[in-house]
Write a protein that binds this DNA or RNA. Structure first.
Length: 303
DNA sequence: CATACGTGGTT
DNA sequence: TAACCAAGTAT
């Protein structure tokens, strides 16, 4: 008799041995080796940059920016020394430009506090600006080959489905981390490959809107195999059109594309609601994404 | 735990 | 056409 406090029975997750046995051959055949940061010789810094750029931006959009970026600023010291306006322009239209600011701060911290070497310890990585639980683990695992759970949206979804659920919850939980960790084999280099393969499976086969169980190496070990993904949003989505973020985006686009400092009147012209422009401009200044010159005109920050 | 934070590809 | 959602982080 199970205690009342126990959760209902769910399909058990596969053993690490079975998972690796199924997943690794699949990964060897399906690994997207064309992703530029997967080229042999990519530095830890290059991997870190690719991970930050890929936070909420599709990898296909990231790849060309990453190429140009690493050509221009190959090391943390290079990015640390760059004018921030150049950094924001190179970031282009990838979205969430605060990430670019954090990445430059990260470069400065690594250059100044870590002798230019990207840390290998997730706890140390997570202290850096813009580096959270996922990115810290990703660098520690994908570059350094460590044995840590790498839990992004793909992995959370795959692990949830292995356990018989259609999808994971809204945020990464302790349970997600523990469940993913329980799937890792003891050997660190093998665990690192399993981590990347799990993510790749979620990106290519076990996707948000549909499952491709026929192409999945884990289908016979999966609690969700053969089931349809329920229609409708898996979680609450934020609107974009007409929001403050939208106005911020318009202002940033104007300043990125401008040759020099921009008059306030041109800023005001990006949006019909003057109050929203005021709010957006004030926030962007506060965030350090834009600045003003001695004449009160607006521009991307020089430093 | 919920929400703010950009932009565009895919369905 | 819209809706959905993308290698998340900070608050």
């Amino acid at each position: 008799m199970r205690a009342a406090s126990e959760t209902p029975t769910e399909p058990a997750l596969p053993s690490p041995e079975l998972l690796a046995e199924r997943l690794l051959p699949w990964f060897d055949a399906n690994n997207r080796t064309e992703l530029p940061w997967r080229r042999p010789g990519t530095t830890a810094w290059g991997v870190l940059v690719s991970e930050v750029m890929s936070q909420q931006t599709q990898v296909a959009r990231v790849a060309p920016v990453w190429e140009a970026w690493m050509e221009r600023w190959p090391t943390p010291a290079d990015l640390a020394a760059a004018p921030t306006a150049d950094v924001l322009r190179e970031w282009g239209r990838m979205g969430y430009p605060r990430r670019a600011l954090r990445l430059q701060e990260c470069a400065r911290a690594i250059a100044e506090d870590h002798g230019g070497t990207v840390p290998a310890d997730p706890a140390e990585l997570e202290k850096l600006p813009g580096i959270g639980n996922y990115t810290a683990a990703a660098v520690a695992v994908f570059h350094y080959g460590g044995r840590h759970a790498v839990v992004d949206t793909n992995v959370r979804r795959v692990v949830a489905r292995l356990g018989g659920r259609a999808d994971a919850g809204t945020a990464t939980t302790r349970a997600d981390l523990a469940a993913t960790a329980s799937l890792l084999p003891e050997d660190a280099p093998t665990a690192a490959r399993v981590s990347l393969a799990l993510m790749e499976l979620g990106a290519l086969v076990c996707t948000a809107r549909k499952t491709e169980c026929a192409a999945c190496p884990l289908s016979d070990a999966c609690g969700f195999s053969g089931q349809e993904v329920p229609a409708g949003p898996s979680r609450k989505r934020q609107r974009y059109k007409g929001t403050n973020r939208h106005v911020r985006g318009e202002v940033m686009a104007l300043l990125r594309d401008a040759d020099g400092p921009v008059e306030r009147a041109r800023i005001d012209a990006v949006w019909h609601d003057a109050r929203m422009v005021n709010e957006a401009v004030a926030q962007l200044i506060e965030d350090g994404l834009i600045g003003t010159d001695e004449a009160g005109r607006f521009e991307l920050p020089s430093r």
